[in-house]
Deep mutational scan, measured.
Amino acid sequence: MEVRTIKVFTTVDNINLHTQVVDMSMTYGQQFGPTYLDGADVTKIKPHNSHEGKTFYVLPNDDTLRVEAFEYYHTTDPSFLGRYMSALNHTKKWKYPQVNGLTSIKWADNNCYLATALLTLQQIELKFNPPALQDAYYRARAGEAANFCALILAYCNKTVGELGDVRETMSYLFQHANLDSCKRVLNVVCKTCGQQQTTLKGVEAVMYMGTLSYEQFKKGVQIPCTCGKQATKYLVQQESPFVMMSAPPAQYELKHGTFTCASEYTGNYQCGHYKHITSKETLYCIDGALLTKSSEYKGPITDVFYKENSYTTTIK
């Protein structure tokens, strides 16, 4: 009895394709271990004539594949690729409408935090270190965002349907971005203890939790000093293409032309909904596939993004 075979390709990165001759009487799992086709788990399936010449994702289970996976995804987590594939199996079914010149995501599976993050990423200057993220990001900007969303979920250790947080998501993504040249110098002034300067680099240099107003941050924000008295913390120097200011959701007025974009969060910790506000020729609110415009805006804002380049204080 002759062994019926077909020729397929296996890959971990969709760049390096490895030619395989597979036995049609055995499952993919018996031949390769966990195997995925377009995100779908085909591990328990036997090869079919229609699979001839198709590319299958496999887990990096030998040295060659491990090197290829690390170079593309910059992670050695053995569960990463499987999590990416199972997320992709959902995100490829989502709709990605162009809204006001940006790629958004039609609401499904509690994905409003991903839509808000995706919209924000198209408006701030950011370059990702893992080629996987950078490639998928370019495709997302062009309207094909399924891979990018699935990668975000995998890097953030999230599953489809789980509630997510924009600030946490951005923080994970910033860790995989090139923020080497970003720098922030802060000064804390206390009447009792004097003053202390701190220099922050990388992710810490672009994120701040405690106030939404970048102007206020430049002037000074009140913080408790270690001595128990009130101290003032203010920005001395900022070198970065953008800054992200966050605070627990509270009524906040966004003035046209003073910011790049913002995240609105309605609801409580267990259950809520994100919308995205962007400042173009007027203010726009993007909620999944829905767009509304207004000249002014007041609502429960939790993150505001500002364009920056270089700032030095005039406070002496």
Rank of each mutant, 00 (worst) to 15 (best):
E2H: 09
V3D: 14
R4E: 15
V8M: 10
D13E: 05
I15F: 10
V21Q: 15
Y28V: 06
G29F: 08
T35K: 04
I45S: 14
E52H: 13
G53L: 13
K54G: 11
T55Q: 12
Y57L: 10
P60T: 07
A69K: 13
E71C: 12
Y72D: 07
Y73M: 06
G82I: 12
R83F: 05
S86F: 10
T91S: 05
N100T: 13
I105M: 01
N111G: 05
N111K: 05
C112Y: 03
L118V: 05
L119I: 04
L121P: 05
Q123Y: 03
I124P: 01
E125L: 05
E125N: 09
L126V: 15
F128M: 05
P131Y: 07
D135R: 10
Y137K: 02
Y138N: 13
A142M: 15
E144V: 06
A145G: 10
I152Q: 02
I152C: 04
C156L: 06
C156R: 03
N157A: 02
N157K: 12
N157P: 01
T159Q: 15
L163N: 02
G164K: 00
V166H: 13
R167W: 07
E168N: 05
S171F: 15
L173P: 01
S181E: 14
S181D: 14
S181G: 13
S181M: 11
R184C: 06
V185C: 06
C190F: 07
C190M: 04
Q196P: 03
Q197P: 04
T198D: 07
T199W: 03
T199P: 07
A205C: 04
V206R: 02
M207H: 08
G210W: 07
T211V: 13
L212C: 08
S213T: 06
Y214F: 08
E215W: 02
G220I: 03
V221Q: 05
Q222F: 03
I223R: 03
P224E: 14
C225E: 01
G228V: 01
G228W: 03
K229R: 15
A231E: 05
A231V: 03
A231W: 03
Y234K: 09
Q238L: 02
S240N: 01
M244I: 00
M245L: 11
Q251A: 10
G257I: 02
T258P: 00
F259S: 02
A262L: 02
E264W: 02
K275L: 06
H276I: 03
I277C: 01
T278E: 00
S279V: 00
S279G: 03
S279M: 01
Y284R: 03
C285N: 06
D287Y: 02
T292H: 11
K293S: 14
E296V: 15
Y297M: 05
K298N: 12
P300Q: 13
V304I: 11
Y311A: 05
Y311G: 06
T312W: 08
